Amino acid sequence: MSTVIDHAVQARLIASAPQDRAVPAQLRYEPADPFAVQISFPPAASLDGADVQWAFARELLARGLITPMGAGDVQVWPCGPERTVLEFHAREGVAMVQIDTAELRSFLARSYALVPAGCEGAHLDLDGTLAALLRRA
């Protein structure tokens, strides 16, 4: 199945400036990469005016809705009953956004309808990936 889930959300960029600001974001899930979710932000959300994209574990997002998760470049934690914080670390700095928890749950439910938790391995194309690696070698 090659269905891709794209889910638009409104994120609130948490800034040290006087006011936070709303930015659109796009969540994406592809069964071809079953363990990962992606989030992208438009150029207006970045300091250098470029699109910003992050990929991280679907399980990190799911567990971060309940309890603080992550120790690397992406960290997720609940911020009250209605919001979830996603924190992104890059060499240029740190960005934090808040997203409505219900939107994140909806996105995850759609992804689990395509690829249930624990069944991700059945969606990996190991032969195709290995063949691609060998062609590049």
Rank of each mutant, 00 (worst) to 15 (best):
V85M: 08
G121I: 10
V9P: 01
P24R: 10
A137H: 10
T129Q: 15
E30G: 11
Q75N: 06
S46K: 00
L134D: 14
A102Q: 10
S111Q: 09
Q53P: 10
F107R: 04
D33L: 09
P24K: 09
A131L: 09
R91I: 14
S16D: 12
F88Y: 01
G72Y: 04
V115W: 06
F107V: 03
C79L: 02
L47P: 00
D51P: 08
P42V: 04
G121T: 06
I5W: 10
T84K: 00
A17D: 13
L114Y: 07
Y112D: 15
A113I: 12
V9S: 00
L108D: 01
A122V: 14
Y29R: 02
R28K: 11
T3Q: 14
Q26I: 13
A17Q: 13
V4D: 12
A45S: 03
T101H: 00
A55R: 10
R12Q: 09
A137D: 06
A90L: 03
L27R: 01
A44C: 01
D125G: 09
R63W: 11
E59K: 01
A25Q: 07
A131S: 13
V94F: 03
H7S: 08
S106F: 11
A102I: 07
A102G: 05
Q53L: 14
F56K: 04
M96Q: 13
I99L: 02
M96H: 06
D6V: 13
Y29T: 03
W54H: 05
Y29L: 11
A17L: 13
A113P: 08
S40C: 09
G121S: 13
G128R: 11
L114Q: 11
L86Y: 00
A45K: 01
A117R: 10
R105T: 08
E59Q: 09
W77L: 08
E120L: 02
A122S: 14
V4E: 15
R21H: 12
G121Y: 09
F35N: 09
A32P: 15
D51C: 02
P42H: 02
P78G: 04
A102K: 12
A8Q: 15
R83L: 05
D20S: 11
T84S: 00
L133D: 12
A131M: 08
F107G: 00
A113R: 11
A131D: 13
I66S: 14
P31L: 12
F41V: 07
A95L: 09
S40V: 07
V94K: 05
R105H: 10
A32M: 14
E120W: 04
V97C: 06
P31Y: 07
Q53C: 12
D33Q: 07
V115C: 12
